[in-house]
């Protein structure tokens, strides 16, 4: 750990040396007085903001003029950015009423309000009072309205956005035992509802197990013989965010099993040499070489989950 800590610090210092001094242009813009009147319309904005970045915002759902709810059918850019009349007249003296450049927590509520004025139901219905809202996460901290493709709606790219904050989960996605997130086959939102979920940890279902059963329905049961921790919480044994052990296990078998089971019928040996390589309780699937049906058995002779 000492070597790695030193390496991390050296890495950080080296990168810090590359950094450029802080600028003040952004802050100055934020300090301008806000416009209070609306401009003549989107044309006033695009006469200056004519790049792809600006155009993308009104090209998708927001640009559907046939939908009376869409910004394109209303005030255009000012539907989200608020009044910009004075800014259109003198961009050096005034800013638009609502800016989104600052990702600061202090501005989160205002940035959220600009979106939830329209997006207040559907998947977003529980955002208010959700974990993210209470943590001052605003919509544009994750979503990119001004890009042709919002990364949150791209299953292969979504996780990169999530680990911007949930940094401890990044390495899990690179572990060999993991869900196929890097391949775009499982996305964070398959299990979590970032706008507020039904269960703990913003899960899409009321419990951990119900969330897992969405794809692993064979584990649901009920079974003739049930394994209590399995029905209790899949997370007792598995880490869905990636593991250094096979099958997303939180510890290696047989030692994981021995956290609850010790010397019931088997010798509770620590499986060290010299019997190590020959021991059918440690190689291969370890305990599961025999106790195959650990998620529950429906065989009348399956009381020890052997079949």
């Amino acid at each position: 750990m000492k070597h790695s800590t030193a390496a991390i610090l050296a890495f950080a210092l080296a990168l810090a040396g590359l950094a450029q001094p802080a600028g003040a242009a952004g802050a100055a813009h934020e300090e301008m007085p806000a416009s209070t009147t609306y401009s003549d319309g989107t044309g006033s904005c695009t006469s200056c903001h004519d790049d792809a970045h600006a155009g993308a915002a009104l090209s998708g759902a927001h640009g559907m003029a046939g939908d009376a709810r869409a910004p394109a059918a209303g005030r255009g850019c000012e539907s989200c950015h608020g009044p910009g009349g004075e800014h259109a007249a003198d961009e050096r003296a005034f800013r638009v009423a609502q800016t989104f450049g600052s990702r600061d927590a202090e501005t989160a509520a205002a940035r959220v309000e600009a979106c939830t004025a329209c997006h207040a139901s559907g998947a977003q219905r529980h955002f208010q009072a959700s974990e993210h809202q209470r943590a001052d996460v605003a919509c544009n901290d994750c979503h990119r309205v001004h890009e042709p493709r919002d990364r949150m709606l791209d299953r292969a790219a979504q996780a990169e956005a999530c680990v911007d904050c949930h940094r401890e989960l990044r390495s899990g996605m690179n572990k060999y035992s993991r869900h196929p997130m890097r391949e775009g086959k499982v996305a964070c939102t398959d299990c979590h509802a970032p706008h507020g979920g039904r269960g703990p940890q913003m899960l899409v279902e009321a419990t951990v197990n119900e969330t897992c059963y969405r794809c692993h329905a064979e584990k649901r049961g009920p079974f003739l013989f049930e394994h209590e921790p399995v029905q209790d919480d899949c997370g007792q044994c598995h880490d869905p965010h990636g593991s250094v052990n096979d099958a997303l296990l939180v510890a290696r078998s047989p030692f994981l099993c021995q956290q609850c089971h010790n010397d019931t019928r088997h010798p509770g040996t620590v499986y060290a040499n010299p019997n190590f390589a020959a021991n059918n309780r440690v190689v291969g699937k370890a305990c599961q070489n025999c106790h195959t049906a650990v998620h529950g058995s429906n065989h009348p002779a399956g009381q020890t989950f052997r079949r």
Partner: peptide, 10 residues
């Protein structure tokens, strides 16, 4: 807004 269209310059 679940019927929202994807960006057009997609």
């Amino acid at each position: 807004d679940e019927t929202a269209a994807p960006p057009a310059d997609y």
